[in-house]
Design a binder for these strands. Structure first.
Lengths: 256, 256
DNA sequence: GAGTGGTCTAGACCACACA
DNA sequence: GTGTGGTCTAGACCACTCT
């Protein structure tokens, strides 16, 4: 059943404590395959006896292994080895969805058209819905606020909102609050997931005129899909001139 | 000094424990401004006395507030209110840096040129270094492995490695391992941060020929900067045809 | 020195899974 | 029932900051 007792834990030279030695030993036994994936770790009580540590400390160590995805704990069952290798995890964190819109403040959105539509052929793919599904569609342009009065368009925007969320309060001609935020406030819901795609796109024709760039300029098309649970509630597309918009992000090593 | 004693904590109807009531009270006092940003929370000992909870439980609650970014703890000082509003945090997690390269496997990188260069004028900006700094520069093309033998280029790639990491093992004509990984292995280091920028770019001239797309096609230029601590160690640029490459990502609500 | 948060021990009870 | 992890209490010592 349970694996054999550990070799005696011996803090290595320097400052290493018994607790550190236990963590190191468990990790190395897991990565070496001595404790294969799927096997159970000794129980917390056993680890306490083997090491002389208190259960508090043992639990903290096992908790760290859990955070690293090496093991998983189940009440009534035990602690199972889940992965042999601690992944280095890089994490991008955002304070709010607004950080997705990197131009969050200092810009202005002007609504041009607004109305209920039924998904046409070309939109079914974008909206992941059957032909004819009803959506609120809002189109407009987002402008940057430059010092001089000549505001430059940052993006040509199209927003789709699922019909059952199609009457958010506060959606006027020049809304100051993002639509997703209006939805959250009006319906008392919270988006649980946002997917984003970034496409390269050449800006031509009407779009070039709207965005005030030469025909054939480079641009980014950003598509975002907002979910509440499994339900797709909002889809936005933004076409950004490359010369005025770079999408940047940072990832931090989140290992410990 | 310390804020006035709390109103008596009273678990609300239902299943709420004293601990839940403490957490709820602290949160509401912080968000209402009764405990303004910058002020100190009562000490852990005081909270124990006020609530009758053990320090373990109080610490766990304060720990949760810390995770949410509401407060920050400093040994010897106390617990400071950091933000009035618990931000909903959306998190993107990756198993490894490889997930940045979304085409991770099933592609092949072919080196075309390789050599030590000194940063020219145009490169100083990209490499964030003074004119004349030495870098290993590797250029090549990444191909997708399609079923038929006709491999299509996915990206025209340029890689810069800081001179002191400029001799990684295993960098041949057609390396199977990403360069960042070779560096980590050869020098026993670990990248701590990766920054990424995505630009829209029109593919023209030689690049269009290399990537086998019509002149003037849309593309994405992706610039990545790899850091070890504050030191910029590797910079890569990849020019991707829009028709064969979409950058997509997902963000999950990580609130609790 | 006095007071803070950080860590740890020792012991208890509970909710849950399995036989 | 028995044993697991989950939670909690009570008390101790330490490292750190400020006076």
């Amino acid at each position: 059943m349970a694996p054999e007792a550990n070799v005696k834990l011996m803090p290595r030279g320097g400052e290493e404590s018994i607790a550190d030695a236990l963590e190191r030993t468990l990790k190395s036994e897991i990565s070496s395959g001595k404790r294969p994936v799927g096997s159970l770790l000794p129980t917390e009580t056993e680890l306490c006896q083997q090491t002389g540590l208190s259960r508090y400390t043992v639990r903290k160590i096992v908790g760290r292994l859990t955070e690293q995805g090496l093991v998983s704990r189940q009440q009534g069952i035990g602690t199972t080895v889940m992965a042999a290798q601690a992944q280095s995890r890089y994490v991008q964190t955002m304070g709010s969805i607004e950080d997705l819109f990197q131009y969050a403040s200092g810009t202005e959105f002007k609504v041009e058209k607004r109305g209920i539509v039924r998904a046409a052929d070309a939109e079914c793919d974008l909206l992941q819905c059957p032909l004819g599904t009803k959506w609120l569609r809002v189109s407009g342009v987002r402008y940057g606020k430059s010092q001089d009065s000549a505001q430059k368009p940052i993006a040509q925007v199209m927003i789709y909102v699922a019909a059952r969320y199609g009457e958010p309060h506060g959606l006027g001609k020049s809304p100051k609050t993002p639509v997703y935020s209006l939805i959250e406030a009006s319906y008392g819901v919270r988006f649980t997931r946002v997917e984003q795609e970034i496409h390269g796109r050449v800006i031509a024709g009407d779009a070039a005129v709207t965005l005030a760039v030469p025909d054939g300029s480079a641009g980014l098309l950003i598509v975002r899909r907002y979910y509440i649970g499994e339900e797709l509630v909002e889809v936005t597309t933004g076409l950004h001139p490359a010369e005025r918009f770079i999408y940047s992000m940072a990832f931090q090593l989140a290992n410990r």
